[in-house]
């Protein structure tokens, strides 16, 4: 009887380990697009994001480069990732791969770096060496009205990523991060007047 109990416990533990290893805690995105995103132009990539249910870390990196620089000059994820590490937008300690699911915390960390959001005291003291850095970034993005409240582990949909890109662009524009560009010629005086804020 006791031996049977041991066997049941071992089988149960083995099954649990199997489920966890196969898919239970997998961060890989199962859905794969029909067209490779790296082959798309920037505008196609942005509108491709709106069609996907979950964004990956690699797509998030490219999206943030577009949000910050206006275009993505890198050919592959490895080059882009190295540049983002150099800029301090991502950390090797996270251990994220290209096809890993992008979560809210990671997206907010990159967004806070793109927008140069002012960190809090706790974020500076604790988040600077990695403790809760991405959760503090969520707080900063919420305060900047870029996103709403959400848990750090929540996967990011493609639409939410584009929404965040747009809000990050608005934030940069309002904070004067973009270089002053000459206004387009007003073909209709009333039209430009109507849209002026």
């Amino acid at each position: 009887m006791r031996r049977k109990t041991h066997i049941s416990a071992i089988l149960g533990a083995a099954f649990t380990l199997f489920v966890v290893a196969v898919g239970g805690c997998s961060q890989q995105r199962q859905f794969q697009p029909t067209v490779a995103p790296e082959q798309m132009s920037d505008i196609q990539f942005v509108h491709y994001l709106e069609t996907i249910p979950v964004a990956t870390f690699g797509e998030g990196c490219r999206a943030m480069v577009i949000a910050a620089d206006g275009s993505d000059p890198y050919d592959d994820h490895a080059t882009r990732y190295a540049e983002l590490v150099r800029r301090g937008w991502v950390r090797d300690a996270w251990g994220l791969n290209e096809n890993d699911v992008l979560d809210i915390g990671t997206m907010c960390y990159m967004t806070s770096e793109v927008c140069h959001l002012k960190p809090s005291v706790c974020s500076t003291l604790l988040g600077s060496w990695g403790l809760g850095d991405r959760r503090y970034a969520i707080r900063q993005c919420v305060d900047a009205r870029i996103i709403g409240h959400a848990p750090a582990y929540k996967p990011v949909t493609g639409g939410a990523l584009v929404w965040t890109m747009g809000r990050a662009e608005d934030y940069q524009q309002e904070s004067g991060a973009f270089a002053a560009t000459p206004k387009a010629a007003a073909s209709g005086g009333k039209a430009s007047e109507l849209l002026a804020e």
Partner: peptide
């Protein structure tokens, strides 16, 4: 459709009956 840092302004109508959508 527009890309990031892009915008497109459309004019509907003319004169006093002007609608502009961006």
């Amino acid at each position: 459709r527009t890309g990031m840092r892009s915008k497109c302004t459309l004019q509907f109508g003319e004169g006093p009956n002007l609608t502009v959508i961006q």
